[in-house]
Every structure is written in structure tokens, then in C-alpha cells.
Design a binder for these strands. Structure first.
Lengths: 209, 209
DNA sequence: TGTACATCAGTGAACGCGCGTTCACTGATGTAC
DNA sequence: TGTACATCAGTGAACGCGCGTTCACTGATGTAC
């Protein structure tokens, strides 16, 4: 518990990215100015362009960092859950719970998703950026879909279930829950309630009462 | 079927709003410039400021118009559905189907929701605008929640159901479906598939097989 | 151990453009008497 | 029917600011021999 361990000594680039992430989530990419980022990081404007040759590179770096968190963090949630539970259904439900909770307490004060923010501004970007936006949800979809397959193998559903659509529903419920949480006045934690409801649905589809 | 009936002769203000709506959905409010709007409407910049004293008034007008469509259009969908079906569950399912289809073929080429776009830029706005953003989803929530109450009265569910969360889920699934449809490469109609899945869920909660 | 060079992480000054906004004015249409 | 005035839907020119971007340069640290 040394004091040094608490402050990981963020470098300038990380400070820029951290501040940009919050700002993009609050007012969007276009309205996030380089000026405010350098004020937060305490460097000059040319210093910014040393780290990011163009503004669009900031957007890409933001998405790449976010995608890495998905690749490692969310993947680990599913791996851990499947390691901890013998029943795939229990594992999936645990993983979804962890994912929902992580999503609800993201970087900024309000929940939000970079990919969602970017998706409503994406004609400003090039193809590479659009692919980065897409990548994160593709990975998440894959993880959930793979888990659903294991669940379906262990618990054959009564009626046929479209596993792709069901996996998408988890993503949709999180994205939509975030938007509702952003729009509604106080903290009502719609996102968490939605994930709970979704988990109940999945359970009802596969567990034979 | 006269030719005059096809072209309702949009006035300049409507042209500005129409173009702005598409643009906001594609690149966001901040990146939607007055310059491009007046180019589309064929007026000068001062002409724009005759219609909207400040840019923020354009945003408000956009949201007010959208809210009116919800107030009349979506309300009518529910009224029509409940007039056409004796069973409240059938009525709700029909209304949701109509709502989902309307949402999937909105103004622009891709599905999108003004409130969602604005919610990811809302620190740019004043309180009045934020209330307008909120109003639309409050109304929709109210309509779905009222319908769910009638369904629950006619078909008491086996297990207790949180009707507010279930109503939110319809909104979340539509908002989330839109984001996924925007991000995924071709037209996969995730939004419609999600609404179908949601309707199946509602049906399973209330109809005793 | 000393020197030469390369890389890193910036500085400082300037750029042009496009943005939202203001202001005085105008021509066409509508209304009052 | 004619005139006076008001309102509507704009025009045209100018504004200052902040934006992203460029360019030549710099001081500190690292590496080679």
C-alpha cells in the first residue's frame, strides 16, 4: 500500500486520452477541442500534435484503447465466469452481470460508450475509424454468442432461439440503457435494471422450470 | 392523386429542419453547420437567423417537431392497436410492431434517433433543450407502461414483473438496435429483429402456455 | 570516461478558414380606414 | 379604390474568435564507440 502504487504516474499522452474520453462522452468528438485537452495536460498545442499528427488520430487512439479494454477486460470476465461455474448458464449469467456493472460505472460521471458516441458522428471519420468503432461490438457479440452456444448445448431450449439476435439483445439493452440513463433526470440505474431483466429472459429461455 | 398533393410545398423553415435532422443524425449537432443548411435551403445566412435567432433554437425546434411526431404518431399507433384488438396483449404486440417498423425507417438512410444523438452532446445545451430530449422518451415510456398495465390486468403474470423496467426495455432495445445497425456494415435490420425478440419476451411473460 | 549523434517530448509563433452572430436595410404581401 | 402602415421573409456586408494545422527550433535523455 505504498503511495507510489496509488498514482501510476500517467504520462502526457494518457492524460490527453483520459480527458478526451470524458469530453467526447459529454459533448461529442467534434465539440471536443484540442485547446481544452492541452489545458488539462498542461502542454502547448504543438505538443498535442507531437502525440497525434491529426485530430482524427486522437479518435482512433481512443477507440483502440477502448477496444483493448474489451479484448482483455470483457474477455477475462467471461473466462473467469466459465472457470468459476460448472453450468454454462450460471457462467453466462455471472459474466453478463459483471459486464453490466462495469458498463454502468464507466469513465465519466454518467454511463456512456465511446462507440455509441462516435456512431452518431461517424460521417466525420474515415473507414479505418469506422472499423475501430465496429470492432468493439463485434468482439463483445462474439463472446456472448459463444457463451450462448455453450448454454444451448447444455440446456436445449424448448423453442428454437436465434442466438445471434439474443446476443445482440445484450448489447442493445446496454447501449439503450446507457442512453436512457443519460437522458433521465437522476440516477435511476436503468442500465443495471435492464441487464437484470435480460438475464431473467435468458434464464427463462434455457432453464426448464 | 394530383401532382400537387405529392409535393406539399415545404416552406424554407421546414427545409432547414429536414436537412438539419439528417445532418445531426449523421455527424451530430456541433458538426452540423448553419452554412450547409442555408446552402440546401438556398437562402443567405441572415435568412437562417430570421428563422432561428440562435443555433440552439434550431436544436430545440428539431426536438419539438420530433416530440410532436411522438405525441401524435406513436400515440395513434397504440390507440389504433387497442381499437383493433380486444385482447390487450395482442394490441400491445401490434403497437410495438408498428413502432419498431416506424423507428427502423426513420428520416435518414440509416436508423437513428435525435434524442440519442443529442444525449451524447448534451453538455452543449441548456436545461430547456435537455428537457425536450427527455420529453420524447418519457411519453413513449408512459404509453408502453400504460399498455403493459392493461395487459397485466387481463393476463396476470405468474411471477411478478417490473412494468417500468419492462417498458424501458422496449425503448432500450430500439435505441440499442439503432446503434448496432449504424455500426454494423450492411443492412442487417438488427432493430427489427430486436423488437421481434422483445415482443416474444413480453408474450412469454403474460401468456400462459 | 568522453564525445557525437539520435531520439523524445515537447515550445513558440504564425496561418487561414469557417464558424456563429450582428446590424442596418429591403421588397413583397397583408390589413385598416 | 387608394393610401398608410405593419409584418414577413428575407439580403449583404462585416465582425471576431477559436479551430485544426504547420514549421522551424530546443533542451533533456539515451545510445555507440
Amino acid at each position: 500500500m505504498s503511495a507510489a502504487a496509488q498514482k501510476p504516474a500517467r504520462d502526457t499522452r494518457t492524460i490527453l486520452l483520459d480527458y478526451a474520453e470524458v469530453s467526447v462522452l459529454e459533448k461529442g468528438y467534434a465539440a471536443t477541442s484540442i485547446e481544452e485537452l492541452i489545458a488539462a495536460a498542461g502542454i502547448t498545442k504543438s505538443g498535442f500534435f507531437y502525440h497525434f499528427p491529426e485530430k482524427v488520430d486522437l479518435g482512433k487512439a481512443l477507440l483502440r484503447r477502448d477496444n483493448e479494454i474489451v479484448e482483455t477486460g470483457v474477455r477475462a470476465m467471461f473466462a473467469d465466469a466459465f472457470a468459476a461455474h460448472t453450468d454454462p448458464l450460471d457462467a453466462l449469467l455471472a459474466a453478463l452481470k459483471a459486464y453490466g456493472e462495469a458498463a454502468s460505472k464507466s469513465t465519466a460521471s454518467r454511463p456512456g460508450c465511446l462507440a455509441a458516441a462516435f456512431s452518431y458522428q461517424d460521417t466525420l471519420f474515415d473507414d479505418e475509424t469506422r472499423e475501430l468503432i465496429q470492432h468493439g461490438i463485434t468482439v463483445k457479440h462474439g463472446l456472448i454468442r459463444a457463451a450462448l452456444e455453450r448454454v444451448a448445448a447444455a440446456h436445449p431450449p424448448r423453442a428454437p432461439v436465434d442466438l445471434d439476435a439474443l446476443a445482440d439483445m445484450a448489447l442493445a439493452v446496454v447501449q439503450g440503457g446507457m442512453i436512457i440513463d443519460r437522458v433521465r433526470p437522476p440516477e435511476q440505474a436503468v442500465l443495471n435494471a435492464q441487464m437484470t431483466l435480460y438475464r431473467t429472459y435468458v434464464q427463462s429461455l434455457f432453464s426448464h422450470a
